[in-house]
Amino acid sequence: MSFVKPAKVVDIMVETGAAKANLSPFQMVIRSVLGGAILAFATTLAFTAVHQTSIGLAGALLFPAGFAMIVLLGLELVTGSFALIPLAVIRRQTTFGRMLAGFGWAIAGHLIGCGLYAALYLLTITNFGHNLEAPLAKTLIALSEAKTLGYKELGTDGMLLVIVKAILCNWMVTLGVVMSFTSKSTAGKIAAMWLPILTFFAQGFEHAVVNMFVIPAGMMLGADVTFADWWEWNQLPVLIGNFIGGALFTGILLYMSHKKLLPAREEIAAAGVTVKEPVIPAVNGGKSL
Rank of each mutant, 00 (worst) to 15 (best):
V71Q: 02
A42P: 05
G36H: 13
L72W: 00
L57H: 08
F67G: 10
E15C: 13
F103G: 00
T16H: 14
V4I: 15
V89M: 04
K8H: 12
A101N: 04
M69N: 05
F47P: 00
K5P: 12
G35M: 11
F41C: 13
V89H: 00
A58W: 08
G97K: 01
S54E: 11
G56R: 05
V71W: 02
I90A: 13
W105L: 09
L100D: 02
F63W: 08
I30K: 07
E15P: 11
M28I: 15
K5W: 14
E15K: 04
N22C: 13
A65Q: 02
L77G: 08
L73P: 00
T79C: 05
G35W: 03
G36C: 07
S54Q: 09
L77I: 09
W105D: 06
P25Q: 12
I70Y: 01
G102W: 00
G74N: 05
T44D: 01
L61D: 09
G104Q: 00
V14W: 06
L62E: 09
K5D: 15
R92L: 09
S24D: 14
T53I: 04
I30Q: 03
V14K: 01
G104C: 06
F26M: 15
P6V: 07
S81N: 06
A18W: 15
M28K: 10
G17R: 01
T53H: 07
P64D: 15
S81W: 00
A83G: 04
A7W: 14
